[in-house]
Write a protein that binds this DNA or RNA. Sequence first.
DNA 1: CTGAAAGCGCTAACAG
DNA 2: CTGTTAGCGCTTTCAG
Lengths: 336, 336
Amino acid sequence: MPRTHRPSVTIGDVAAAAQVSRSTVSRAFTRPQLLSPETVDQVRAVAARLGYVGNQAARALSTGRFGNIAVVVPDIANPFFPPLVRSMQLAAETADLAVFLGDSDESAEREAKLIARLAPQVEGFVLASPRLAEDLIRELAATRPVVLVNRDLDGIPRVLIDSSGGMTEALMLLKKLGHQRLVYLAGPRDSWSDQQRREVLTSAAAGLTVDVIEVGRPSYAAGRDSVSAIVRSGATAAIAFDDVVSQGVLAGLELRGISVPSDFSLVGCDDTLAALTTPALTSVSAGAATAGTAAAKLLAQLLDSPDPSAECVTISTHLVIRATTAGPPRRQNPRG
Amino acid sequence: MPRTHRPSVTIGDVAAAAQVSRSTVSRAFTRPQLLSPETVDQVRAVAARLGYVGNQAARALSTGRFGNIAVVVPDIANPFFPPLVRSMQLAAETADLAVFLGDSDESAEREAKLIARLAPQVEGFVLASPRLAEDLIRELAATRPVVLVNRDLDGIPRVLIDSSGGMTEALMLLKKLGHQRLVYLAGPRDSWSDQQRREVLTSAAAGLTVDVIEVGRPSYAAGRDSVSAIVRSGATAAIAFDDVVSQGVLAGLELRGISVPSDFSLVGCDDTLAALTTPALTSVSAGAATAGTAAAKLLAQLLDSPDPSAECVTISTHLVIRATTAGPPRRQNPRG
DNA sequence: CTGAAAGCGCTAACAG
DNA sequence: CTGTTAGCGCTTTCAG
């Protein structure tokens, strides 16, 4: 039955070359304990020589395991995610897991579609900053292992980057420097990170006045355009939802001749761009890479033994002080 | 033979319930034209009622088609790649293709491993800036459709971002501004982009003197550390292999009290960070997103009809002039 | 410890 | 138009 011809080396080829049965080859990889060490070595050597790579689809058909996971992010072009995805992929590789990437374009609907499309070939999901409704996530998680990143759903394994440490430090620093009034440039409302940051800032303000300015989808332009509102607020410092927004603010400030940090202080979040720019930004570190590794490991472990006890790993943050923070200007308002 | 039990409804269940053969069920989904409309409707109705979802692995095993492609990049954390990957994934989605992501960590060896691992579940590859040896790429391309990005291998479909336009413009601008001596901060030798840029700069120098400084793996630190060599060269302007290096140079320059652009002019490449920083960088646009879309479309088309004529789409570049370029400093110190 | 044989769920000739 | 049949490449009882 001649069909689509795929010239790849199969388990049969290896078996023939090694003069053993197919089963033996199979066992050499999946359950070497059942074979004599010499056989294992020999078979593996032959396999390596031939460049044999197990056909995952066939394996999956037989075992129900695909050896694939999917990571879906709202926007891979957002500098927060690449390190996350990267470390996840590297960690997945050591568990011999291949990874699908889904970019939902910040849309819950597209996220759902992606998940549905990927689900039949995937053993588990890593959902990074998912925009999906809680019940849909729970529904998915009932089906197969799901690890959340930066979304706090009780009972579902998750890794959370806890901004509160860094945020509090930022608050303290600003206070110590003498600022009294600041603004938070808030991110998307359905982002857990934003909710957390917002809460820390408004509840633990430590005697400072902090106004919230909504910038919507975090972008450079959004940051730049928020400057007039910042100036209007009379604040002498700002904390931005992320470094991209922060850069935008920096640009907007320069445009108005307000210089940082002498006239105005600025703190970003995530430390994605912060170290790479001039001036270097003060920022709350995020450890996205750490989170990625943790998520992959958590998922791999879940696949091995579907542990019902949902783990939650928390990654703490701290403030990295660079060049954009200083005391408030002498005059009451920076060029009002 | 009781094995891993997967409670899912199979084609057989549908066939039984609908009182038809398995083939009929199969055809109802894959080639409805071959069936009477009533049969199709009936089968589909039963399938829907039972919640039947085709098993991808089985389908793939039988047809050799997975509906999956893979994109492998040297480093997804390098800001050049996320927009590329993103647009590719979005384009792939419209062709109903799911995408695997591989990060080779700039290693040809890991790249080969990833490819081998992914190959059995993938219909085609997009290899972005592959570090792999030419013969290995050709070997793979003989097996299945492969689209290259920024690697120029005759006979293999590829999309090339042609820097020469932008580079030449940069040269012209710098010349017009009065610079006479500049340096090129060169990237990795096995990068096609670097080779191309290097050649344009050294061959089309238009009467300018251009020295080449090797920075190795392009990074912020590499750029920053190259500043002493730049100063030593006596150049009044630099073109960097990419924006990350460019940012590093900017930082290194500031550290020495050399200000940009009044004392020194700087041009980056790829326009990845350039617009997001303060000061905004003059940079050669890259159109990574355009390249991603083009690559995905090319691959999708190749999958439909394995056209032997290897297409090569070229994306042209231009210079985006921002704040880091100006004329060379005056010989004498300006007044006071 | 190793081989033989029976499928996993699906599709694709090939009849009828 | 529809059923029969023979696998895709792998794992896994079950014998030996």
